[in-house]
Design a protein around this nucleic acid. Structure first.
Lengths: 346, 346
DNA sequence: GTGAAAGCGCTAACAT
DNA sequence: ATGTTAGCGCTTTCAC
């Protein structure tokens, strides 16, 4: 039998002061005599007091919690939710997001609740969760374009910040990467190392980031006299990279340089290339995107366009915090610059 | 300016009934006249009412939240926490844990708060979090043996369930795998395909799971007339797998079969093997452990001992739920059976 | 600088 | 079947 947890009242009695004074000490408010402060502190120590958060939240109207939601148009199969979560974390990208978010939240005693919003019901749940005040705001990472969640959040006037610009305008703050510059970086590197017959495996074209990476790649090539470049669309997964590279190779067997819109697809491309007897990077150079862990663990190690995901995620959390505190009211965007990381594949 | 959220009181007034009745409808308690019920429901609809969770938690003494904590003796560097989270999720294992846990929690409207406990401070934070009633219990996945958290949790009599048996006994429930059987499965498969000069890359030997996998592997070999087997200890990371395989190859160049205690190390082993000119599986067969995503994404695809992580995680959540509800008071253990998955590496 | 007291919004025991 | 009421434990004016 676990007995009743000590309350402010208990500590107050123990210290011979009022509840209000104990509360002041707990919350670090100055106007408290140092001696009494220490008295109270010892009483807290002795009783093993821990403030009841529900009671505090009830009056402060703060949960000190944020929802970290991975949103997207997940599959509608029965396995559904379970599989969605696993699939999401199969991309090392999300681990980095978590790392960045936690890095910001923790020093501020804020905590992330993990939520997946891959169906209408799940999205509803997120909205309800926030409206119930269980979380003060939401950090949203969408896996698909046309994700309805951002608009729902904005409409309900709930504090939220997005990772990446939504495909259609929504009055919410977001952090993003200068994807176009990233595409350019890849093109210039490939060109610089002498590749002349380039091709690219782009991401889903309904996603702005994919479009931008592709556009940047194309523009840079065009500027260097290569007006046309073969493109195959992938889905940011290893398998789609495999499929795309196979197709590309069939259509353009003489390809000597490939830009894949993320590392997972680049890894898939390298596998196909090797199986088809092409050496990477000697015969075909491959540049990925993200600089995720697979860039280092797969062979050859990937030359890739680094996205500072942790920093971006931390900034996202910072923006949300400001929105929650009311320190920021207008939607803002913060755009980070990508960086080329040269390893073995190109 | 966001105006005050509607309360029970507002709904009651709108529907012309008492707060209690509205509460009953909201909580789905029968004793309510169907007509009044609908009346109330419409009022809820109209007002856009969402029950305030802090208020409810204050009286029910339930947060409907569980802490999902990844615990371990993380590095003590400054980068610390941030890096720990990223590193943790670099292993696809945790994504599967999250998937399994969420699969169980979600249908029950329970939510996971993600916490990392890699330092004393961080562990304290977890304890405080629970004692404040912000979460009703903890799901703990330790990355290291000698993790002090389980004992702290048990001592504070906080509901908690562990993934894997702790290295020293702690009165908490846990789920685990019959690791010994897994080691045996690997040995028999390798022997069965004709390998005669076996070696193994085991996990950290202070972790019970590592010891068991190794013991199972050794026992099975001994039973088949192989009393001695070269062992190198790894740290469950790709790099450690690379290092271990290199060492093994130096000491025993004629090795024709390797059992690595997880897939990441098996992947590293395969890479080294290939770089040294050995074909996998023709010259050296490799068996991994876990059946994580890398087993499918790395080349060759790994033959591995599958650990039903999602099911185990779901069971862990189920046990915790029972402990929280008081439906289970004694510490229990649930042990799952591993299964061999044959792919290309052996 | 400290205490008294009024709620925050909800559930649950009790009364009707 | 429905309403009344007493808290849950905390923060926060407002007096003193």
């Amino acid at each position: 039998m676990r007995r009743r947890a000590p309350t402010l009242e208990d500590v107050a009695r123990e210290a011979g002061v009022s509840r209000a004074t104990v509360s002041r000490v707990v919350n670090g408010i100055r106007n408290v005599d140092p001696e009494i402060r220490d008295l109270v502190r010892r009483a807290i120590e002795r009783t093993g007091y821990a403030p009841n958060r529900a009671a505090r939240s009830l009056v402060t109207r703060r949960a000190e919690t944020v929802a970290l939601v991975v949103s997207g148009a997940g599959d509608t199969t029965d396995a559904g939710q379970n599989a969605f979560a696993a699939r999401v974390f199969a991309d090392p990208f999300f681990g980095r997001v978590v790392g960045g978010v936690v890095g910001f939240l923790r020093p501020r005693s804020l905590h992330p609740v993990l939520m997946f919003a891959e169906s209408d019901d799940a999205r509803d749940e997120v909205l309800t969760y926030l409206r119930q005040g269980r979380a003060d705001g939401a950090l949203v990472v969408s896996t698909h374009a046309e994700d309805p969640l951002p608009a729902l959040l904005a409409e309900a006037r709930l504090p939220a910040v997005l990772f990446a610009r939504p495909s259609r305008p929504v009055p919410l703050s977001y952090v993003d990467l200068a994807h176009r510059d990233g595409g350019r970086l890849a093109a210039e590197h490939l060109l610089g190392r002498g590749c002349r017959r380039l091709a690219t495996i782009c991401g889903p074209l309904d996603v702005p980031a994919s479009q931008e990476r592709l556009a940047g790649f194309r523009d840079a090539l065009a500027r260097h006299g290569h007006p046309y470049v073969p493109v195959t669309e992938g889905g940011f997964t290893l398998d789609s990279g495999v499929a795309a590279m196979s197709e590309l190779l069939e259509r353009h067997p003489d390809t000597d340089g490939v830009f894949a819109a993320n590392d997972l697809m680049a890894q898939g491309a390298c596998q196909v290339l090797r199986e088809r007897g092409r050496r990477v990077p000697e015969d075909v150079a491959v540049v990925g995107f993200d600089d995720s862990t697979v860039a280092v663990t797969s062979r050859p190690r990937l030359t890739t366009v680094r996205q500072p995901v942790e920093e971006m995620a931390a900034e996202m959390a910072r923006l949300l915090d400001e929105h929650i505190l009311g320190a920021r009211t207008e939607a803002t965007s913060v755009v980070f610059e990508p960086e080329l990381v040269v390893r073995e594949s190109a």
